[in-house]
């Protein structure tokens, strides 16, 4: 499977190489960019900068997409846009979807009925949009400086790190319906995201999104590498 993907990527790269790149991009981007401006700009920030006030981050209707090319895996993007599924169990800003509990021994709940379904695209539109989005790489330099060191770790050590030592489980789900609700589910993160982005975001979330409600957990390089590996393992498991 891995090999197939690698070969696929290789072929794709070769194909891109064969066509004069400027021409290929211009054609793909134009249709995709038009779609983005028409159907997506109302909810997604496509130009940057990221919101730099608490008010603005709370008012955001969808995740920022202006650095999509630094963040996503292109294949995932093309697929998801055709069949979007929920990633953030609490929506774009969880605070808009809370049903407060009056009792101390019961938790606040997410009002799932208030979470809208995401618009879906046809296959050709998804490909065009994906190509246009992947061309947004304002943080290419930051991403290029990240080196993810391959490590091997037993899954139970990963669980310990994620749940007990670093407390990520409070906000993130590491398996279907296990974990917190205010951050994106992470058992799909390795399918969705560039591993270098995962590393860089965990290292300093505010460098990507200055007012986001994920704290900087001061993670050392050794832990960052282990967590990247752990997210790959739980993605393969689910």
């Amino acid at each position: 499977m891995r090999a197939a993907i690698s070969i696929g990527c290789g072929l794709l790269l070769a194909a891109l190489w064969a066509v004069p790149p400027m021409v290929a991009n211009a054609a793909g981007d134009a249709a995709g960019s038009a779609l983005l401006a028409e159907q997506c700009a109302g909810c997604h920030n496509l130009t940057g900068p990221a919101p730099d006030t608490v008010q603005a981050v709370r008012a955001r209707k969808g995740p920022d997409l202006f650095y999509a090319g630094d963040k996503y895996r292109a294949e995932w993007l093309t697929e998801w846009l055709q069949k979007p599924t929920r990633i953030r169990p609490g929506g774009a800003f969880y605070g808009d979807h809370i049903v407060p509990s009056q009792a101390t021994d019961k938790w606040d709940q997410i009002d799932t009925a208030s979470l809208p379904d995401h618009p879906a695209l046809s296959a050709p539109d998804a490909r065009a949009v994906s190509a246009a989005l992947m061309a947004n790489t304002p943080y290419a330099e930051r991403i290029a400086t990240v080196t993810v060191e391959p490590v091997s770790l037993p899954i139970f050590m990963g669980d310990m790190l994620f749940d007990k030592f670093k407390g990520c489980i409070a906000c993130h789900q590491s398996g279907k319906d296990y974990g917190g609700f205010s951050g994106p589910e992470l058992y799909t993160a390795a399918d969705r995201l560039n591993p270098r982005f995962i590393y860089s975001y965990m290292q300093n979330p505010q460098a990507w999104d200055p007012k986001i409600w994920m704290p900087n957990m001061n993670l050392a390089a050794a832990d960052l590498n282990k967590l990247v590996r752990y997210l790959q393992m739980i993605a393969e498991e689910e």
Binding site: G90, Y94, I98, P100, S101, Q102, A103, T104, D105, K106, W107, D108, Q109, I110, A170, C171, G180, F181, S182
Partner: peptide
Amino acid sequence: GATGKGNGIN
């Protein structure tokens, strides 16, 4: 928690 009682969504 929304009311500070230690019982948030997470």
